[in-house]
Amino acid sequence: MNAPADTASSLSRIDGLAGARRHYRYFDYVMAGFVAILLLSNLIGASKLASWQGVTFGAGILFFPVSYVIGDVLTEVYGYANARRCVWAGFIALIFMAFMSFIVVAMPPADGWNGQAAYEMVFGSTWRIVLASLIGFWAGEFVNSFVLARMKLLTAGRHLWLRTIGSTVFGQAVDSAFFYPIAFLGIWTHEQVLTVMVTNWGMKVLWEAVLTPVTYAVVGWLKAREGVEVFDENLDFSPFAKAGPA
């Protein structure tokens, strides 16, 4: 599966530095969607252990992988430097969400309001889950973007499906390897942690594969409207680097 030849040939090839400095029509909207899905999936589904047809998994897996799909779109269409900006934006948003949740939950409830217990159950994530979410997301998303960008150079922009699935294999492995042990080791049994960690990793990769046609459609639509093909050549891939040459 490759991009249509007429679409690919109509795009101007630019390097990662030029891509980082370029103004895009839809970048802000994609970044907003990325951060929104990231926050909602971590807030609503991260700590629930669910089971379906005998398979145990974290409930957040139903929606969190969409943020990885958008992360792939960001790297593929806008380049690693812009994807790096989005990862940091999401990371800071997660920190603020955790801070706000801690303050609001800790505030004494008003007389006559009986929802404190339920509120704490929904929004009172432990420090371990918060820390696990931050570390897992930060490390996993940067690995995902790095692998995809490097694979794009190695494949000369061909085989998008291979890049998106391959980057997810590594990115989600790193995310899960950090998140579940940090969040639940000692709370769940070792067997539960390992089972959920491996199962969720496999399901996230499967989700990426299933959503490949959607990824192709979104990437093709955005590239056609942005008019460029970004290859991250001569770019510093450090998470802490400013957009510039290696």
Score class of each variant (00 low, 15 high):
residue 231 F to K: 02
residue 192 Q to M: 14
residue 117 A to W: 10
residue 223 K to R: 11
residue 167 S to V: 05
residue 205 V to Q: 04
residue 123 F to E: 00
residue 223 K to I: 04
residue 63 F to W: 12
residue 92 I to Q: 01
residue 62 L to D: 05
residue 130 V to S: 04
residue 28 D to P: 11
residue 151 M to A: 13
residue 106 A to N: 15
residue 28 D to W: 13
residue 2 N to V: 04
residue 88 W to P: 02
residue 11 L to K: 06
residue 39 L to T: 02
residue 129 I to T: 05
residue 36 A to H: 05
residue 218 V to D: 07
residue 29 Y to G: 11
residue 57 F to D: 06
residue 210 V to E: 00
residue 109 P to N: 14
residue 34 F to T: 00
residue 114 N to S: 10
residue 52 W to A: 11
residue 214 V to W: 05
residue 160 L to T: 10
residue 239 P to R: 09
residue 234 N to V: 13
residue 14 I to H: 05
residue 124 G to V: 03
residue 79 G to Q: 02
residue 234 N to Q: 14
residue 95 I to T: 13
residue 235 L to K: 05
residue 38 L to M: 08
residue 108 P to Y: 12
residue 143 V to E: 04
residue 148 L to D: 00
residue 210 V to C: 04
residue 43 L to R: 06
residue 86 C to D: 10
residue 90 G to I: 02
residue 155 T to K: 00
residue 117 A to L: 09
residue 105 V to N: 01
residue 14 I to S: 08
residue 219 V to W: 11
residue 36 A to S: 13
residue 197 M to P: 03
residue 9 S to T: 11
residue 174 V to P: 00
residue 6 D to V: 12
residue 132 A to M: 09
residue 159 H to I: 09
residue 88 W to M: 08
residue 51 S to K: 12
residue 40 L to F: 15
residue 134 L to W: 14
residue 180 Y to V: 12
